[in-house]
Amino acid sequence: MKKFYALSMILIVVAALAFAAPTAEVFPSRDINNILVWGAGGGTDLANRLVMAEMAKQLKVNINVNNVTGGVSGSVGLYEAYGKPADGYTLAGVSESCVTAAVQGGFSHGMKVWDFFIIGGSPDLVSVTPNSPYRTLDELISAAKANPKGIRAGASAAGSIHHLNLLALEKGTGVSFNFIPYDSSAGSQNAAMTGEVTVVITSVQEQSELLKAGKLRPLAMLTPDDFDFRGTVIPSSFKTHPGLSQYLPLEQQIGFAIRKDAPENVKQVLWDAFKVAMQSDPVKKYGDEMYFQLKGLVGKEANDIFDNLESVFSWTLWDLGAAKLNPSSFGIPR
């Protein structure tokens, strides 16, 4: 009797196993996972959560956002997402900072194995504390020329987008600041509040509340165009300092990626859903409120942007001596 029980148990289980074997299906027929390489609550996280929620409406399945942080430049999350089958059920939530993953010894495949979806980003600007004497970028630059390394400038950690913008500003104008690194953009802005640094480079979105309250004084955009911030026009730095166009713009790019070897029809489904999501009201409203330039780019256009960023970031870090591996060993063009 006991033997019979055991035997029938095994039979049932084996039947169930055969039954549960994965079968071919129409995409998407189950939940999609977005493995987000940065922490919960950050800019990349928020934009992804919003767009995913809108895409979920189109695709009629849930899209779960899981924050898998750690490593360098989000490498742990990149590996996690890359290790999953290329079936479109796994996406990687990324931003421009991921492009250094290869040269930092994090993610050896680099950016060439992904197809990107770019949601957009908020442009960077130079601001100073309101009690400082600098009214325009010119004044700040000439003061910095007179006093090399004398003015403290805060930005997020070495190798971040804001740090690279600061470096570009230094190179393009031929001055040097005393760079004080912070663990986040918010950290550098807090430091400006407490008077620890005078100059801050972060994005419009990150500064918006402080700008509104007059706790920071905007000097210039680090992009080619002027920026209309709630009626106040922040001038582009390119006009007064043409030398900058050689190094800038370096813009924040928030979005997500799918493995390049995923089936084309799956990518097409995701592209369509993404385009519709980018046109939805909540996303547009979010873009307005966050001072985002919504891009909604996919395919080659998006990939070209990331390839270019990878090249600029990797070589800049290499020249600074802060990259672990030579970019040329990954075939990253200069």
Binding site: S208, E209, Y286, E289
Partner: peptide, 9 residues
């Protein structure tokens, strides 16, 4: 922020 509220001054 997702709900369109920007906390701040």
């Amino acid at each position: 922020l997702l709900h369109g509220v920007a906390p701040g001054p």
